[in-house]
Design a protein around this nucleic acid. Structure first.
Lengths: 227, 227
DNA sequence: TCAAAAGTGTTAAGTTTACACCCATGA
DNA sequence: TCATGGGTGTAAACTTAACACTTTTGA
């Protein structure tokens, strides 16, 4: 039996990726959403997506979509799952893998975002999205929250150096609840992969706050991270 | 712009599913694996898989593959993720979604399994599998363990009525470590969705052991489940 | 001098772990 | 009568949660 002919008796499908892009601003999480100025579903809100190309891995397609929209490379992305209902896209059958990304909202390329008609929308003010994108967002949020509790992936939402107050309000945004300041700092102090840089931030307070950073070497050795 | 023409400028791909089928026997977890008697990769071990068909959802394809192999329907299955590396299948490009299932090993259709040249293999004696199937198994195990801690999905590996000793050794198999009997029973007692049936099992001990079952109604109201 | 954010320890409550013996029964 | 698996409670260790005041400094 010939391998090619075995495979070719089966159907093929369009394969897409959709990106749930989380950013952090003004004490809350936001998503980068597209107000579609093209068909299908013109005028509605959707995630940023794109089709997988020939010779491109699905992961790479997700990275390409993110880079095309934000100008950012080497961003933490994680696949949520694949969505394969027959009628999920009413236009034609498309299977889509959802990925989420965490980005520092200050590093984006604003021109690119504008060119794509994309906007930051706060998590508690999300519009209804097309197709099964609402479900994708719900699933991504739940995976992201869970991972953020066990690994400091959320630090991608902050600048490289950050104050403990910033880190705390990031975690409050991710979890959607308040955290006790002293308990939070106690736990951070136990994580030797979050280290003082020696620099002082004077922008956010008169007194000044110590700046910290993630030490990725120490982090990879000790992968516990729990707030 | 016409929707169809927009879509049709993009490539299409074969879409497959691969099933990580967990069973429970003799105090350990096993996987149902196929010794391939067909190309590609004849003679090697692989997961049970199949191609998604036209007009069939990806979830349905996974269910079909499981039913074809085991004769079982309405089994708990969960998607792990999609695997989309370009060269993951050296024959031709195939994107595959991995699903895991938990089955009661006594309910399988042994003839069907034999017809597919499939065998139960203990988790700690797994052979090397083709393509990226080793990675799929590792990912499925980690997702399954995590879910088993928060929801009693693992109960699918047992008969409908089970003794607490059976339930405990199931959880020991899932976690790969021993659990204290009294602590285990204390926690089960707090879960009112695991209830005594009033029946007594006399097969596994002289004295007889109380049989329990999952009450799905109570369970859905109270979704905490932690061993 | 005061407003605003930074920084700092202790105690109580709750959860998890460790641990050993008697019970009922069929062979 | 004894071997086998079934069944039961308590105390120590550890983890988590609650809580309020002093410090620094620029305006």
């Amino acid at each position: 039996m010939n391998t090619k002919s075995y495979y070719s008796s089966y159907p093929k499908f369009h394969m897409a990726v959709d990106c749930i892009i989380f950013g952090f601003e003004e004490g809350g999480l936001s998503l980068l959403l597209q107000k579609r100025n093209f068909e299908p579903a013109m005028g509605e809100w959707s995630l940023m997506g794109g089709f997988v190309e020939e010779g491109e891995s699905v992961d790479d397609a997700a990275r390409r979509v993110l880079t095309n929209l934000t100008g950012l490379k080497d961003i933490y992305m994680r696949q949520v799952k694949a969505y394969g209902e027959v009628e999920r896209d009413p236009g034609e059958r498309v299977i889509s893998a959802a990925y989420y990304a965490l980005i520092d909202i200050n590093k984006q390329d604003k021109e690119l975002i504008k060119a794509h008609n994309a906007f930051w929308v706060k998590l508690d003010e999300l519009p209804h999205l097309i197709f099964d994108h609402d479900q994708m967002v719900a699933d991504a949020l739940s995976v992201m929250r869970e991972k953020a509790l066990s690994k400091p992936t959320g630090i991608n939402l902050l600048p490289e150096e950050f104050t403990l107050t910033q880190l705390q309000s990031l975690y409050e945004a991710i979890l959607g609840e308040e955290i006790d300041k002293r308990n939070f700092r106690k736990r951070i102090a136990e994580m030797d992969y979050i280290e003082k840089t020696g620099h002082i931030d004077k922008l956010l307070s008169r007194r000044g706050a110590a700046l910290y950073r993630l030490n990725p070497e120490k982090y990879s050795k000790d992968s516990k991270f729990k707030i």
